[in-house]
């Protein structure tokens, strides 16, 4: 089963349960005042998911390690490498 099919199956399952409740095919005795929330549920979920995603990406961008130390070390090693290679007869130009 491809990842696309897994997604379609999961979304399809959720939407059919939701629809069944909205169309009163499954009766949960939800009071009318709460029905509005129920009707907008898929949209709410989408919005929450989008916010969650943005927050997570933002957090990960902010906490992305800047490897300053590693870069400095590498620069030193490059100097060492150039020196030793030249000694071994390597011609840089």
């Amino acid at each position: 089963m491809t990842k696309l099919m897994q997604w379609l199956a999961a979304v399809g399952l959720f939407m059919s349960i939701w629809l069944a409740i909205v169309l009163d095919m499954i009766s949960l005795n939800i009071p009318d005042s709460k029905k509005e929330i129920l009707h907008a549920l898929p949209v709410y979920i989408l919005i929450v998911f989008a916010c969650y995603s943005l927050a997570l990406i933002g957090y990960r961008v902010a906490t992305f390690n800047d490897c300053v130390e590693e870069s400095r070390e590498l620069k030193e090693e490059i100097q060492e490498a150039k020196k030793e290679l030249t000694e071994k007869g390597y011609k840089f130009d």
């Binding site: 990406i57 990960r60 992305f64 390690n65």
Partner: peptide
């Protein structure tokens, strides 16, 4: 302790977003 050096905000953002989408989908 993984990370990057020499990336600006835009590149980090693109990289994190691209990775996030791949993680969610796959």
């Amino acid at each position: 302790s993984g990370g990057v050096y020499g990336w600006d905000f835009k590149r980090k953002f693109v990289s994190r977003t691209a990775n996030y989408i791949a993680q969610v989908l796959l």
